[in-house]
């Protein structure tokens, strides 16, 4: 019986550069997992490969999500199946407001599911509640997507999108970086509120305090050189905290 999300021996490259080197990981429904690892170890690459970023070529391995072969689906199909990535560096989209963007995203899902488009009132309700909870002002919703926002505001807007789209599998790539202490709490709260037996999280972060206090994961993985080199519980956090990644990186090379 395969897990809810099962990544098996995944290999991927960008151009000539091999980045993922036989990565295996599985997550069950309702679980919160954390990935830690040195800069350049492949954490963002993994996130993007799971979403189907055409920059990366999968050269081996498999990914099964809710019983489907994820790698066979295109980017938007994966999104509609429930995969969501809060980007480490979200891209700017001049000329498209966040409100319009969210309307398109929600309606695309509804259309694919054979449902009617969301009416204006329904949409406004949905957006109002979530914007309020995550400290997103009307002004921020009217502005073009990510254009001119500070690093922390961009992260907050990624969290907001996650709340709007209610995905089943949320990958958060350094959502806490660039956020001030209060914003980190709001974001952490966003995750807490959204935790449910049908929803799983893969949280990438370098911030042990944030992981311990806000995320409270079920499992922790250490990634080095494009591979998972250690799986465990929160006790792994202590080890990383004390000794850094040096020990793990050696294992990966050996």
């Amino acid at each position: 019986m395969t897990a809810w999300l099962e990544i098996n021996d995944l290999r991927a490259k960008a151009g000539d550069k091999t980045i993922l080197n036989g990565l295996s990981l599985s997550i069950d429904a309702g679980e919160v997992h954390v990935i830690m690892g040195p800069n350049g170890s492949g954490k963002s690459t993994l996130s993007n490969v799971l979403c189907g970023n055409p920059h990366y070529e999968v050269t081996g391995g498999s990914v099964t999500f809710k019983g489907e072969d994820l790698l066979k689906l295109n980017v938007e199909e994966r999104a509609r199946l429930g995969v969501f990535l809060a980007f480490q560096s979200p891209v700017e989209i001049p000329g498209v407001s966040m409100a319009t963007f969210m309307k398109y995203a929600l309606n695309a899902r509804r259309k694919a599911a054979g449902e009617k488009e969301l009416d204006a009132v329904g949409f406004m309700k949905r957006i109002k509640v979530r914007a309020q909870a995550l400290n997103v002002s009307d002004e921020m919703l009217k502005r073009p997507v990510n254009v001119g926002f500070s690093g922390g505001e961009k992260k907050r807007l990624e969290t907001f999108q996650m709340a709007m789209l209610e995905p089943d599998f949320c990958i958060l790539d350094e959502m806490d970086s660039g956020m001030d202490v209060d914003a980190v709490k709001v974001a952490g709260n966003g995750v807490k509120i959204m935790r449910s037996p049908e929803r799983s999280f893969l949280v990438i972060s370098h911030n042990i305090k944030f992981i311990r206090e806000q995320i409270m994961p079920d499992k922790v993985h250490v990634l080095a050189n494009g591979r998972v080199v250690a799986d465990g519980g929160v006790e792994l956090l202590d080890e990383v905290d004390k000794n850094g990644f040096a020990g793990f990186v050696k294992e990966a090379v050996a």
Partner: peptide, 10 residues
């Protein structure tokens, strides 16, 4: 790519 990750058709 960013738009498609939100479920919007290419």
């Amino acid at each position: 790519y960013y738009m498609r990750t939100r479920g919007i058709d290419e």
